[in-house]
Design a protein around this nucleic acid. Sequence first.
DNA 1: TCAAAAGTGTTGGCTTTACACCCATGA
DNA 2: TCATGGGTGTAAAGCCAACACTTTTGA
Lengths: 234, 234
Amino acid sequence: MQSQFDKRYIFAVDCIIFGYDGKDLKLLVIERGFEPFKGKWSLVGGFVEEEESAETAAVRVLKQLTGLDGLYMEQLHCFSDPKRSGEGERIISVAFFALIDIQKYKEQINEDYHPAWFPINQLPELVYDHSKIAESAKEKLRYKAALHPLLFELLPDKFTMPQLQSLYEAVYNMEFDKGNFNRKLLSTNLLEKLDDKDKMNSKKGAFYYTVNSKKYSAGFKKFLNFVPSQYINE
Amino acid sequence: MQSQFDKRYIFAVDCIIFGYDGKDLKLLVIERGFEPFKGKWSLVGGFVEEEESAETAAVRVLKQLTGLDGLYMEQLHCFSDPKRSGEGERIISVAFFALIDIQKYKEQINEDYHPAWFPINQLPELVYDHSKIAESAKEKLRYKAALHPLLFELLPDKFTMPQLQSLYEAVYNMEFDKGNFNRKLLSTNLLEKLDDKDKMNSKKGAFYYTVNSKKYSAGFKKFLNFVPSQYINE
DNA sequence: TCAAAAGTGTTGGCTTTACACCCATGA
DNA sequence: TCATGGGTGTAAAGCCAACACTTTTGA
């Protein structure tokens, strides 16, 4: 079964990198610096080396672009339609999505790749099937974040409840009642209230919170039923 | 970036085939007929051909073994650790899980593969990383079935509520209250009550139900919160 | 003192859970 | 007629959406 006659294929990874700037949920894309489709927008990607798993390759690719590691990252799907890379040689690709705090990212950016953030509802045309991949990443993010405490990864270490609420509102494109939002989030016991306030966005100021990382991993699996089911789509 | 120098790899699919016999949730494995590990238990798998996507290959492999198509099937994960296939050449594999009604399957079985059903809690040792793959398939099934009307796929077209309940109890390894179970399932409006009864399993007999397939696809995305969150694991 | 945003309290309605009860029937 | 499993009823507890209310503070 396994023999010298089996076909071999190029194997790549693509990263769907979500970021939040305090207002919009955005996706990081790059301008391709090589043919085919030089100058077109594309997801960040790269080939898997011989001694790498797809996961390792995705981490490497992300680090090259953003300078960051230790990011939240998750395998999304393997895209393997033989025609997906157009006329060129077939490329099988595993897509990963990553969540990063845009502020942190800004200091590390590797400009060689000509990266740009686009709001997820105003993405430019992307090469190959990357638009489709981005679309399914958006769905997956909504689905997963409804059930697990994921979106914290898009915020700075310290954040306020109104900030967190805005983020959820951006992701789900709907409004939440602040009272119920606060109660629901605090009832998870994943958040720790800090002593200082953010006074930038209001006169009264909003207390900062941080994720209690011990409880975070324990609670990750139990963060269900946050968003009403009709907003989930997978 | 894409060039003649890029590495190429063998690309395969593995199928995690779940079945239910009325009592236990089971997994279909085959006895390997070739070296290495001839005679050992293995998931059903095969290589991806040049003109195939992983999905197409998985359908083909499944059809070869079971004679069935049109089964519920879903991509699980891409396993690509360079060491996963042991000493042999590296094999990248996309795992799929499939749900089939064991009774239907019986008529179609292709004995060439030496297939066997094992209860999911008493799996034999499997080759390579197949035990790990099976484990993650079990988790995924529990997770997904808690949120979507999936398990019907494991039953005959006509089934009774007690049968359905037994299936859920087998999958989640817990007991459900029959009153609440009935109400919850019926409230989805996905089921249609038939006029005849199954008198095999009780004196009174239990009415048969069938999935209303129109409502099924519409309701698939909204079948949330079926199982309490602590039983979900992903 | 007022506007604006943060944060708390309250209530009515809905869902869920637990469990009691009734039903149909073969032996 | 009785044991067995199918099926229904129901009350208490818990949860949640909606929205009114209080707090804080810069201007």
